[in-house]
Design a protein around this nucleic acid. Structure first.
Lengths: 234, 234
DNA sequence: ATATTTGTTGAATCGTGATTCAAATACTTA
DNA sequence: TAAGTATTTGAATCACGATTCAACAAATAT
């Protein structure tokens, strides 16, 4: 039998297993068994902790967003210069590549949000928080005289987050000529116009990209996370 | 027995039925029976025309994009003034509201594009076409001296489409304070900076919003297209 | 130690959707 | 009109995922 775990521990594990399973099979296409396998358990055990699967999925999405947001906050926490802070923030909002797990999950949600109110709210809330984050950076920069905002800070912040989101989708969809670097460049073009600041990317800023050395999911080895396990009906 | 149709006619009908079914149940969550019902047929008949469901779904997505793109082109076809053309184009790229069928379908695809190469390509191609469309408008405007572009036309065009896309998602997700009008406003803020043109929205431009009087799907009456038929597991 | 609670399994059951196909029906052609 | 072909149905079958639950094992309490 698989190592027994306390209720709380197991729930945390399950949330992460669900997160991984959804990334592979789609937010709406995941099956209970896939989540169970990812957690190294049987479907019965999963049901024991989450009698209603939807609750688990929602918690998993919630956790994914929280993780995504916290990572961004953490990454800019030590930066004082508003310009560097802005640049770093922009990069941290984009996927590292087409297989970036965090952003993949968020993209999964986009479509479902139109049909599922909970998901819509979740996504909307994240958007608003990100806008607030940018707005703060912009306001501080303006207060320090570093930025000369070309408009309302909220308006600029909203557009910044919107651009991030959209390029995230492009990168995930494997656009041939838009990768993380190109996306940063495009968003920076807008940021320069909006702040009146040259926003030069320092080599250091690029290093910051290192999100997590390797997702390294604890579950049993399945097919690669990339393309092979792809056949995906629909 | 349901009215017999020629092979070609039936295929067109099925593509549309699939489109409608996907909007209601998700691009990946649709079931054969739902498509059949939407078309007023039995599952067997659907399989007769499309032995592999995936082909039908891909064709349906393709058709949806084509329709979306053609509508946009058509809407700006008669407009001579670059500024009005730009404004109209921006509005035509946004959903009319959270239930806009065309955009809903596109949003559905966003998540799947990460797992399905065909969908990724489809979406990427649409993006590129839209960029080209904007680029043409920008270039013509610049050539006529109406616009003073603040950067490369492709860069501006890419950001315009990106903003459209992102706000489309926000509107579909029912953001409390971002509707079509607000989104147009935000995108126009960026467009003004990029073109150096005031881009005043004329009342006429707002009228153009009328996409199709009513989607009026030919199928049997199901639950309302809005929220009621929503329970949607995941 | 023993009893009790908690977490997990594995098999059985149930339900649903996909798939198949012979029969029936509607067109087309001769 | 008769023969032939194309389309659709409806029932049967198949496959698979969700759900249930008795038995079991691991932790905890007594």
């Amino acid at each position: 039998m698989t190592q027994r775990k306390s209720r709380a521990d197991r729930r945390v594990e399950l949330i992460d297993a669900a997160r991984r399973a959804m990334i592979q099979h789609g937010a709406e296409g995941v099956h209970l068994n896939q989540i169970a396998e990812e957690a190294g358990l049987t479907s019965g055990a999963v049901l024991y902790h989450y009698p209603d699967l939807r609750d688990l999925l929602i918690e998993a999405h919630h956790a994914g967003m929280e993780r995504f947001y916290e990572q961004r906050v953490k990454k800019i926490s030590g930066i004082a210069d508003p310009a560097q802070k802005l640049i770093t923030t922009i990069r941290s909002g984009l996927p590292e590549g087409p297989d970036d797990a965090g952003v993949r999950l968020l993209c999964e949600l986009g479509g479902a949000a139109g049909r599922n109110r909970v998901y819509g709210t979740l996504l909307t809330t994240l958007y608003d928080r990100q806008v607030a984050m940018y707005q703060t950076i912009l306001e501080i920069g303006a207060a320090q005289g570093v930025f000369k905002l070309a408009g309302d800070s909220e308006q600029i912040a909203r557009n910044l987050v919107a651009l991030e989101d959209a390029y995230g989708y492009r990168i995930i969809a494997r656009h041939h000529s838009i990768g993380p670097d190109e996306a940063v460049g495009l968003i920076l073009d807008f940021a320069r116009m909006s702040t009146g600041h040259p926003l030069k990317e320092t080599p250091a800023a690029r290093q910051k990209t290192t999100r997590t050395p390797r997702p390294r999911n604890g579950g049993p080895a399945r097919g690669a996370t990339t393309t092979p396990p792809q056949q995906d009906a629909s």
